[in-house]
């Protein structure tokens, strides 16, 4: 699993998906991302075969554990499809069985209200719960993918963040508070606000936490005046 995580940044999508599936001991793995204002779902990478077909199916139908996880930001566990209430995802369940899917668990990728995508893991055998180690690995993979998606958002890597997960700075309360504040200042989404914060920190070679601290302390404001952020008092806002 560690090797897989290390290669996430550079690897080829379908090769990675196969490697992830092997490391997890899963029948297949798929990663889809939410894009644009309407948060449409697009495939990022999928292991070929059943995982690709299942992912296509659930996002075409717009129902299933993947769309549920994307919408709610909560993991959706259906490790044994035979125990899922038949009316939960009626068409999907029938079609999934035809594809040979026996169980599926979906993990949201995101940070608070920022929703980035979904990791789907297909079980190799049905079980009452996902095996403990597989679950721990899947959550680790989801955290690593979240970090990667935040980086790949058009911004440059922040600080010493590693592919093992979101950079530590992203865990600090001030960063999330500043994200909320900047989203109001610029009237943009939280994910764009975070991007602007990170881009600013990167361009000035400052730690993200320091920039966020300045925003929360109101020493720094982001105004959409093309000149970028500035300190109140130094110039007209």
């Amino acid at each position: 699993m560690a090797d897989v995580l290390r290669s996430l940044r550079h690897g080829d999508g379908s090769v990675l998906a196969v490697a992830c599936a092997q490391a997890l001991g899963a029948a297949g793995v798929a990663v889809s991302v939410l894009v644009g204002e309407d948060q449409g779902v697009e495939p990022l990478w999928r292991s070929p075969g059943v995982a690709a077909e299942f992912e296509e199916l659930q996002f075409t139908l717009g129902v299933g554990p993947g769309p549920d996880a994307a919408r709610t930001g909560t993991a959706v566990m259906a490790p044994d499809l035979d125990t899922v209430r038949p009316d939960r995802w009626p068409t999907l369940l029938t079609e999934a069985r035809k594809l040979g899917v026996v169980g599926v668990c979906c993990f949201p990728l995101g940070l608070g209200a920022i929703r980035l995508g979904v990791l789907t893991v297909l079980a190799s055998a049905p079980g009452a719960t996902m095996p403990e180690q597989q679950l721990a690995d899947a959550l680790t993979l989801a955290a690593a993918l979240t970090g990667l998606l935040l980086e790949g958002n058009g911004s440059r890597p922040v600080g010493s963040g590693t592919v093992m997960g979101p950079p530590m700075e992203l865990h600090r309360a001030v960063v999330h508070q500043a994200t909320g504040m900047v989203s109001v200042q610029l009237d943009v989404s939280l994910s764009e606000a975070l991007l602007r914060l990170r881009a600013f920190a990167y361009s000035r070679d400052l730690p993200l936490g320091d920039v966020a601290g300045d925003v929360v302390a109101r020493r720094l404001r982001f105004n959409d005046d093309k000149d970028g952020p500035h300190s109140p008092g130094s110039r007209k806002g």
Binding site: A75, V76, M77, P79, F107, T179, S183, V184
Partner: peptide, 30 residues
């Protein structure tokens, strides 16, 4: 969402909810 007692995902959900609250604190304070 599903009744399976998956403890690890519950921890994850609690932590993510916390981030959500920090984000809303920022929005409201602004």
């Amino acid at each position: 969402l599903e009744q399976s007692h998956i403890e690890r995902t519950q921890l994850q959900t609690a932590l993510n909810s916390r981030i959500l609250v920090e984000q809303v604190k920022g929005i409201l304070s602004e």
